[in-house]
């Protein structure tokens, strides 16, 4: 593995079991995955195949039942809750299908949210949020509340929030799933630019084959197993 393609994410022999009452649901079983730094990876697969579960494990939002998850050389599955939260704040940017913006905050304040966990001054937070909004092309919408923005604009705010801390890894859970084709394309353009121009490593869960086509690699998840080709 060359320096430019060294593994940023390394998932080894991961099982994930959910318990619903007395029933055990095996979502992932013995899964291995390596994601090189700077890759734009698309994860596809049918509903319930465990795509989002895998994304959550990579992002430290959940823990594997077994196996290891290493990101940037750190075993995140072994971190305490507190250290894991700090790790997420430093290294992960999250983009959601339904944007997950705070309706009571302006675009600017939504983008500033992750910076509240830093020691930056108020002025510096404001400046960085403005830069992030400028990157996503929303510098003229700083003081707009989410309800006054279109779906595409809300997702741009979501992306601005995810990059404002300059994270190593961007995790996108169906980022175009709630958007029309045109807005979806704009979001994908933006993600592609972040990957190509700023070298962000992106993992994107999607059902959309057109969206997956923008990625540098596509993997398919079915019945807890990863393949390079979709299963029939």
């Amino acid at each position: 593995m060359t320096e430019s393609s060294r593994s940023l994410v390394s998932v080894k022999n991961v099982d994930k079991v959910f318990k619903r009452g007395s029933e055990e649901i095996h979502v992932l079983g013995g899964l291995d995955l390596d994601i090189p730094e700077g890759e734009f990876l698309a994860l596809m697969g049918p509903s319930g195949s465990g795509k989002s579960t895998l994304l959550n494990l990579i992002g430290g939002l959940d823990r594997p039942s077994q196996g290891s998850v290493e990101v940037g050389g750190e075993r995140i599955d072994q971190l305490s809750n507190r250290r894991l939260a700090a790790w997420r704040a430093r290294h992960v940017g999250l983009v959601f299908q339904f944007y997950n913006l705070m309706p009571v905050l302006t675009a600017q304040k939504n983008v500033e949210l992750p910076l509240l966990l830093t020691h930056l001054s108020r002025a510096e937070r404001k400046k960085r949020a403005a830069i992030a909004l400028d990157i996503v092309g929303l510098s003229n919408r700083n003081n707009h509340y989410p309800r006054t923005l279109s779906g595409g604009e809300q997702q741009r705010v979501g992306i601005a929030r995810s990059i404002v801390t300059d994270p190593t890894l961007l995790l996108c859970d169906e980022p175009t799933g709630d958007l029309d084709r045109k807005s979806g394309d704009e979001i994908l353009d933006l993600l592609q630019a972040l990957n190509r121009e700023q070298g962000k490593t992106i993992v994107m869960v999607t059902h959309d084959i057109h969206a997956a086509a923008r990625a540098t690699r596509t993997l398919y998840l079915n019945k807890g197993r990863l393949t390079t080709e979709p299963e029939e």
């Binding site: 939260a85 700090a86 704040a89 705070m102 949210l113």
Partner: peptide
């Protein structure tokens, strides 16, 4: 619930 989960997701601790 969703917003509080988001805060945790972006790095707020349980105690936070």
């Amino acid at each position: 619930t969703n917003e509080l989960a988001l805060l945790k997701a972006i790095g707020f601790t349980d105690r936070g």
